[in-house]
Design a protein around this nucleic acid. Structure first.
Lengths: 195, 195
DNA sequence: CCTACCGATCGGTAGG
DNA sequence: CCTACCGATCGGTAGG
């Protein structure tokens, strides 16, 4: 509830009275659970980023070719994004907005930790992929960044289409799999024809 | 000034008193220029999206191979994004947030118009590229979406790093050109080796 | 979990 | 472009 409101209207645009109303209680009762608006926001953000990283975790270390594993990782990311649109939007809101500075530090710390962990896993995945000759011999840091940019683009499309009605979305149906094929073609070692 | 504040703190998080202070005047004086906060925001957003689309326009229809023209288009996008970080952030903020609904409609209309125009130009560019055999025979709608996702990913990286200190950014130095090489490799008709 | 209430700040207006 | 001011709402507290 709070997470949805924060995601849709932002930190400053969401009042504690609205959150309470959504929960069927009155504003002062919130203070039995959280010491302040900041604490509430941090708690909600913490839960969001944890859900996100958990839902996304497993696939990379599974079985199959590097292509299959990366695709399965992508599928878990996309299905989470589709099922939990405001969880992701909240993470973006927290990253982008700078409510008052005090809260910033704590959020940045949470993000840093999760980001470092994710990059470490990606790095090892791509290192192996290059070593096994399935992925093109590009610097691993470029591969990692390329992947993160690809995902960011997909997610952006998803988040932006929440507010305004955009046309065709990158996540409509299985369209993202077409984008994935092009992405993989860009980093694959051997370059099959596309058709 | 107003654009920077709206971009950094969002619509709800920016007060008219702050904007006025940034301009060296008092709050009520703003009402000599704009009838309301909504009008001010729409005006600032309109200017931002216009600057963005103008700075980005020329390259696609220039001379050279499709690869050269798309790369030059990318360069103009990235250099605008680096030079005008909060102009882009404001566009994102306007797209994402839904301040009160009245303002939404007008912003969506501005976005729709510019978006349709941009997609039309991309579509014609990619159609020609495929027809000339320089770009892989993929449905044009997929190519267009793929490009927009690529750009969204680069821009996201830029915007997110404004607030929090992220590690390596996709737009540090010429790193984005490495990502571009992989992107092009994914959509190119003939697939040279990467090394 | 509630009612009642606090000072501060919000967008906006009056009047000059 | 200003000072002075409006009612409404903000996050938060007192006290039960």
């Amino acid at each position: 509830m709070a997470s949805r409101l924060f995601a849709e209207r932002g930190y400053a645009g969401t009042s504690l009275a609205e959150i309470a109303a959504g929960l069927g209680i009155r504003k002062p009762s919130l203070y039995n659970y959280y010491a302040s608006k900041d604490e509430l926001f941090v708690a909600v953000f913490e839960a969001s980023i944890r859900d996100w990283s958990q839902a996304t975790r497993p696939a990379l270390d599974g079985e199959g070719s590097f292509r299959q594993r990366l695709e399965s990782h992508l599928r878990s990311i996309v299905s989470f994004a589709v099922d939990n649109p405001h969880t992701l939007a909240l993470c973006r809101e927290a990253l982008r907005n700078q409510p008052n500075g005090a809260i910033r530090v704590r959020i940045d710390e949470l993000v840093q930790r999760q980001e470092l962990d994710y990059r470490r896993r990606l790095r090892s995945f791509f290192e192996n992929g290059v070593a096994c000759g399935e992925i093109a011999p590009v610097p691993v840091s470029v591969l990692v960044l390329s992947w993160q940019t690809f995902i960011d683009g997909l997610i952006s499309a998803r988040i932006l289409e929440l507010g305004s009605l955009r046309g065709q979305s990158a996540l409509d149906g299985d369209l993202y799999l077409e984008l994935w094929r092009l992405f993989w073609r860009g980093i694959a070692a051997s370059q099959e024809d596309i058709a």
